[in-house]
Amino acid sequence: MAKLASQAPVPVFVAQGDDAPAETARLCLNSTLTIVETPRAAAILLVAGTIPASLIPNLHRLHDQLPHPRATVFWQAEPTDLLSEAVTVRNDDNLVSVLTDTRSSLLSGSHGTEADLLPDAPPNEWRGVGSHGQGGKGMMGGTPYGRPMAMTAADFRDGLELDAYTADFGPFLPMFPPGLVLTLTLQGDVIQKVSVVHLPFAGEGNAGAALLRLLGLPALAKRLLRGPSDDADFKRLIRLSGVRAAIPPGLGCAPNGSDVRERFERLTTDPGNPSKVHVDGVGLGDLLIGLEWHEAMLVLNSFDDESLRAICANTSSPELEEKNGDSMDHEGHAGHMS
């Protein structure tokens, strides 16, 4: 079994940090690797670039979500205290050969699997309402097992009382720009509230490829990463894919009038030179509230890094709300999706 498994591409989950090497986005072009979209499918956690101190707890939570046998590789980054035994790759090392060697060692057993960094126990104390901590108002809400549950709140579209769910999303979710952490309140998959916990990292960005992946065209996303923006074949495939019809008109309209459709065309025809969007005081709340999840992800990934950071900076943050005495915790915060 181990012999057969070692013939498969190495499944790697990338946790991108600040100042990640420019080659990080192009790792997926290497046929000996598979860049997976969930840590559950990975054998190796690749930490590319520096993880800021405030996000290290997120990295440790992410680490424990990889199945055994697992290993962590730090690429142009210093290992954290809890992962001091992890493999480290400097500038000059051959990353791909280190990754394949590490996976082979994991399969053969010569490289021991990494133990959990955090205790396997509910992170919060049991403080629900009722004899079993099962609820708050009626049969819903409350904090069973220390987990605040979704509680009914009016949906602003039609006033129906549905279950509002609040949680942190990011900073390593593959459909989020790296580093971005948002506190989102969802009704189903519709965004009702948004605040920024951590800004996305500054970097070159690959918004065009990210949009193609979100539109269900990962093979074309890879092709774009190879740099064929003037490839007639690529342009024809993009046109025939019906992308223009798939992206709703007017979605994510910025003050300069550009929407996701327009930004997508610019990002895929000239990915190396994304034009800046004048954000003009627009925050994420203006752009995302009322959108369903898929639309919101398209909007988030349609901006160049600098514009997105400016938009996030214009958005309310939990710290700011606490100062103003307007905390959103009264609805319950359900956890964290790294």
Binding site: A5, A8, P69, A219, A221, L237
Partner: peptide
């Protein structure tokens, strides 16, 4: 299809077995 569209090379006819073995070699969390 995936590799052809993305501009990559060929595929081994045994690749599905390799992928299955790789999945089965990992823990069910």
């Amino acid at each position: 299809f995936y590799r052809r569209i993305s501009g990559q090379g060929g595929v081994s006819v045994l690749s599905p077995f390799y992928a299955a073995a790789a999945h089965l070699s990992r823990q069910r969390l």
